[in-house]
């Protein structure tokens, strides 16, 4: 059961970070960062199966895979940005976290542009 591994790693990291936080705050941040990275990579290894199912569903629904790829990319950006922002907040760098989120939002908007354009075109074609 992978969930036990995940919870085990998470709890160990948390306990270590809390224990070290009293004496050395910087090391505690590093511990939480490493724990987060390990958990993130572990989850990432399982994402392949989910994406496979999503692609299959999209193919069956005759959806252009280009749009699905964009949506998946946007989700990836959102996750990575949130991960980075939370680490920054844990380290007490709230302003950096906000900037990371801002950059991620811009990137999401840029990626969403083809979908918006396609939608605009569809609506215009609907009108006589």
């Amino acid at each position: 059961m992978e969930i036990f591994q995940v919870v085990g790693i998470g709890l160990t990291g948390a306990v270590l970070a809390v224990y070290v936080k009293e004496s050395n705050r910087e090391i505690a941040v590093l511990i939480s960062l490493v724990t987060g990275l390990v958990l993130f990579l572990f989850a990432l290894s399982q994402v392949g199966a989910v994406i496979k199912v999503l692609v299959e569903l999209a193919t069956r629904a005759n959806i252009n895979l280009f749009y699905l790829t964009i949506v998946l990319k946007i989700m990836g950006i959102a996750y990575i940005a949130e991960f980075g922002a939370q680490i920054c907040r844990d380290a007490g760098e709230g302003s950096t976290a906000t900037k990371i989120e801002f950059a991620a939002k811009i990137l999401v908007m840029v990626l969403a542009l083809p979908i918006i354009m396609a939608l605009m075109e569809s609506v215009l074609r609907l009108l006589p």
Binding site: L54, V71, A78, K105, M109, I115, I116
Partner: peptide, 29 residues
Amino acid sequence: FLDMIMPSHSMQRFVKVVMGLFVLIAILN
């Protein structure tokens, strides 16, 4: 299915908007 794997905090709104557009285009096409 995509909604289930959506991030939970500040980025959620943005992703939801794009997802809505995606659904619209998938139905309109």
